[in-house]
């Protein structure tokens, strides 16, 4: 039991330490431009220790920047799943719709956010809706595919129950289909949220909006490399936290 706890705590720490060492080694030898871990901390501690301080439009605490990005991701993600869930249910239920839409989805799915963003700018002419459009469209596919898979894997028995009890289409949807597919739907949501968070950086970098990705690009242009690393670490930690959060929701649904 004791060793189990030890390995559960110490091994992940060891992994992180290893990355830190590599970072330090790279900054000390190959790339003199790369700030060392210690210098990164020195240069960015004002952002971390006072995370919600707004000193100016281009100079804000890291918590505030992450918050802007999270709000944008939340909007894009919600828009994405609001479109993706019904679409997934539809192509899960109906074979003709599946045949019709599956190739289109498979073609749209691998298109990079960097490619969608210009299209968004052309369509909406403003950077904010373009960013939301990009997040929504890139993050919706895992939800579409998982919802579809969830519906298609519903045991035949449940369909029989709906038939035998003569449930109306609405009842079949709310009492049988959605509850049965819910664990899969939430797996889709978790993957979608991960992608939405990935896309945020690209879309903020290209549109120059305020947020963690926008800040990263701004600091690169002003040659403050330590802040780039700070942004990267923040993005990673926030993404990890989001995934864990959705994972916890998903686990609850599966056990229920």
């Amino acid at each position: 039991m004791k060793t189990h706890k030890l390995t559960r705590f110490l091994l992940p720490c060891g992994g992180l330490l290893l990355i830190g060492l590599l970072w330090w080694a790279a900054s000390a030898t190959v790339s003199k431009e790369l700030p060392s871990p210690w210098k990164t901390w020195e240069d960015s501690k004002v952002y971390v220790l006072r995370p919600f301080e707004k000193r100016g439009e281009t100079d804000q605490g890291i918590g505030l920047l992450a918050y802007y990005s999270l709000v944008r991701v939340a909007k894009g993600f919600l828009l994405g799943i609001a479109l993706a869930t019904p679409l997934g249910l539809l192509i899960g239920i109906s074979n003709p719709f599946y045949r019709m839409l599956d190739p289109a989805i498979q073609i749209l799915r691998p298109i990079s956010p960097l490619a969608w963003l210009p299209l968004g700018l052309i369509l909406f002419r403003h950077s904010e809706p373009a960013a939301l459009f990009t997040i929504a469209i890139c993050s919706m596919w895992p939800t579409v595919l998982n919802t579809m898979a969830g519906v298609r894997s519903i045991p035949h028995d449940y369909w029989n129950v709906a038939k035998v009890l003569r449930l109306s289409p609405v009842q079949t949807l709310t009492k049988v289909l959605i509850p049965a597919a819910l664990p899969n739907i939430f797996t889709g949501y978790r993957l979608s949220l991960g992608i939405a968070w990935l896309v945020i950086v690209a879309s903020e970098m290209l549109t120059g909006t305020a947020g963690i990705g926008g800040f990263l690009w701004q600091e690169y242009n002003s040659l403050v490399y330590a802040h780039i690393l700070l942004c990267m670490l923040t993005i990673g930690i926030v993404g990890f936290a989001l995934d864990r959060l959705m994972g916890a929701v998903e686990a609850r649904l599966r056990s229920a």
Binding site: L167, K175, A256
Partner: peptide, 26 residues
């Protein structure tokens, strides 16, 4: 009415809800 060998109850509903669903639909 029909009774299947493998029960075919909806696992996300209680016993009462399962029966109520059938009564409501009938």
């Amino acid at each position: 009415g029909i009774v299947f060998q493998n029960y075919s109850l909806l696992p996300w509903f209680s016993a009462l809800e399962n029966v109520c669903l059938a009564v409501g639909a009938a």
